[in-house]
Amino acid sequence: MKPLEIADKITEKFPDEVLDVREFREQVSVTLKKDRILEICRYLHDDPDLCFDYLVDICGADYEGKKEKRFEVVYHLYSIERCHAIRLKAEVTETKPEIASVTNIWAGAGWHERECYDMFGIAFSGNSDLRRILMPEDWEGYPLRKDYPVEGTEREWPGFEAVLDRANRFKKFDWQG
């Protein structure tokens, strides 16, 4: 199926949810409201004509100051059986960065959602294991947000200070033979 036809099908089924359909280089992105994302994904996964069995990727994007709603959660879907692809984008606000998890549909979503939570601070309700994944558990801030400095924050990570502290203490050790 052509990507635009898929977008039409989604618009037909969920007319109130689709905000925007855009095509660029033969790839189509469908921008959605976040509230019924689980239902839409379930429909895309189960419908025999669409059959999106393979979740390629979930990632976040930060449009600070560029869009009204700051975050977007981007889903890349592909159907191995039908060989077609679509991109879904769900808008998430800064004040309530939360969206439903799709782990019940695609088991592989779990870690992608954790990474998105780790990097952008978007919570996925329904993900049973929502912890930081790449950064340490006690890290402050969300590194991939646009207001997070590339060179890192001024304050060192407490865990690193503890390691430095210990290293300095070991240096003072006097070997008595």
């Binding site: 990097m119 930081r132 994944i133 790449l134 950064m135 340490p136 590194p143 991939l144 997070y148 590339v150």
Partner: peptide, 11 residues
């Protein structure tokens, strides 16, 4: 995982 995280996306 995450011991080798270098922030390649951010860079």
């Amino acid at each position: 995982v995450g011991y080798l995280h270098r922030g390649i996306e951010k860079l």
